[in-house]
Amino acid sequence: MRLRLYFFIPALWLFVCASCGKTNAEWESQLTDRDPFVAGVAAIGLSLQDPAGARAAIPVLLATIDRSEVGLQAQAAEALFRVGPQHVDLLLENLVVDELMSFDRLGTIKNTLVGAGPRAVQQIVGCLAGPGRQKAGDLGQVLLEIGEPSVVPLINLLEQAPDNKLKNYAAFLLGNLGPRSRPALPALQRASASEDLELRAAAKRAIAQIQGRTSNG
């Protein structure tokens, strides 16, 4: 009996520990800890436990990616990859606002957006047409990596964008998507008859790329 008691109490403790994890509120309270490691671990924990409810963790994950002394860069990037697709708007906001972000952070955001796939395309194109114009290059790269799901929103951008520069860029991206952009041919043909010289040229180039031709015509 005494022997069983010796092991019963620790076993009970083990059972209690194993069943008690931290709640979302407990993780969130640690996000502002002055120790960046504690904050980083909390952000990762919250992201893994409840990706949809981990919005508050995203800025901490982004900061952790830049903190080499903490040693959680790769884990923060992976956690961001899991939680980011559910919070594309926040990722885009960070991308646009921070003009001097590090390559590591920029790369992670872009990979996460690519990972979000079709879910993110509409928001990315919306950002491109709006506050994200300064980051057109980065957003365009993401759209190209996402691939075919980007075609329809880009067609809409080509036809409805407020200025020709955006339309040019939409034509450029559609051309670079190659044969996957076949549904865009009618819109591109209309654009190739535009009054704007640059848009006409961009549309014709894109049509040639989609049709796999290298000569004009």
């Binding site: 520990c17 008690c20 990762i44 893994l48 884990q75 992976e78 956690a79």
Partner: peptide, 18 residues
């Protein structure tokens, strides 16, 4: 030991990744 175990369990989720 018991304290460490409790801490380990509370942080199990991120620790698996870290």
């Amino acid at each position: 030991v018991l304290r460490s175990f409790a801490l380990f369990s509370a942080n199990a989720l991120p620790l698996q990744l870290v």
